[in-house]
């Protein structure tokens, strides 16, 4: 929790081995989760399909490590990374992916709709850009409620084409809302390169509303974390909103079934990113060079997390499906205070 506490005070966690290790572990957790999810898909054990976050771990972890559990995030169709980084548990996540009763959404949401409100994750979203209003509204609510909560809105480069973003940026800027728009530019929107679908510069779009915009290497977890800590601290003081464009890369296809993708993305490009810009490898290397940990320690961390993930998968596979009677539960929620008022009125 040190980094999170530090984040509140606005001081960088430099030299804090514990923070570094937690960030490393969180990135490995995301990778391990995704490798297992991919395996579930390939072995036809997972219903539907899913979008892998692998390659983008430093974005989710660098940002979420600068937040507290009271701070909110909104996530996307490529949301497992955000979910893990915000503190979610493997078992409930895998149960959700398999449509089981113990999943975060009791199997009703699946991969694209995991929400974990205990950690401030307002949910993934299967509508591209669909959470931009929600995130900005959460920031408005934080302001109205007089808290210093900050909301981070994660979205992809493709989502910048949604008009909703421009409407809410305008209001966020007018009302100085504590929201940070975090655009994960992974170079592709489905099967199309970003430069073919985005005119001009993304940072300039935010700047047009008077929103302070930053560009950062999304493969460098420390750079992401350091920037986010500063912006979060300022957003808490009413200096928001902010925009961050994070340069990153997705390792897999658009979704797990997107295997033959050479027509839109060269294999060389993929191996180049994986071999030279991997966020986990590079951070691990830095940690050993700095003497924070030994290579053996890193191997042990990896093994432990992988075992954890596999155990969670086994647990989820054996877990129960929701009972048929749940199908029409949760369409609405009860309103006990209203009911009480109504019965008082008729009494």
């Amino acid at each position: 929790m040190a980094a999170k506490a530090a984040a509140k005070k606005g001081t960088a966690p430099k030299g804090n081995a514990e923070d570094y290790l937690r960030m490393y572990r969180q990135m490995v957790r995301i990778r391990a989760f995704e490798d297992n999810a991919n395996q579930l898909y390939l072995s036809a054990k997972m219903p539907g399909l899913t979008h892998m976050y692998s390659g983008q771990e430093a974005v989710a972890v660098g940002i979420c490590e600068a937040l507290t559990d009271d701070d909110k995030i909104t996530s996307t169709h490529r949301g497992h990374g955000h979910c893990v980084a915000k503190g979610a548990d493997f078992k409930a996540m895998f149960c959700e992916l398999l449509g089981k009763e113990e999943g975060y959404c009791r199997g009703k949401g699946g991969s694209m709709h995991i929400a974990d409100q205990s950690h401030g994750n307002l949910g993934a979203n299967a509508i591209v850009g669909g959470s931009m209003g929600i995130a900005t509204g959460a920031a408005l609510s934080a302001q109205l409620r007089g808290t210093d909560e900050v909301t981070v809105c994660f979205f992809g480069d493709g989502a910048t084409a949604q008009g909703l973003w421009y409407e809410v940026m305008n209001m966020a800027a007018l009302w100085k809302l504590p929201v940070i728009y975090a655009c994960e530019n992974n170079g592709y929107s489905e099967y199309t390169k970003t430069e073919e679908i985005a005119a001009g510069s993304l940072t300039a779009r935010a700047e047009a509303f008077g929103i302070e915009a930053h560009k950062v290497d999304g493969q460098d977890v420390l750079a992401v974390n350091e920037l986010t800590q500063k912006l979060v601290a300022r957003a808490r003081k009413g200096e928001g909103p902010f925009f961050i464009e994070l340069d990153t890369y997705r390792y897999h296809g658009h979704h797990v079934g997107d295997i033959n993708r050479e027509y839109y993305r060269a294999k060389d490009e993929e191996s180049e990113w994986k071999s030279t810009r991997d966020p986990i490898l590079n951070f691990g290397k830095w940690l050993t060079e700095q003497g924070v940990v030994s290579e053996d320690d890193l191997v042990a961390i990896n093994d432990e997390i992988r075992a954890d993930a596999e155990a969670a998968v086994a647990y989820a596979e054996a877990a129960r499906y929701p009972d048929a009677s749940e199908v029409d539960m949760h369409v609405y929620v009860d309103s006990p205070e209203l009911d009480a008022a109504l019965s008082k009125q008729s009494a």
Binding site: K100, K108, G110, V331
Partner: peptide
């Protein structure tokens, strides 16, 4: 279709 949002879980979706 049932008057519910379409659930993800195969155990529920097929009922709708």
């Amino acid at each position: 279709a049932m008057d519910v949002p379409v659930p993800f879980s195969p155990a529920l979706e097929d009922l709708t």
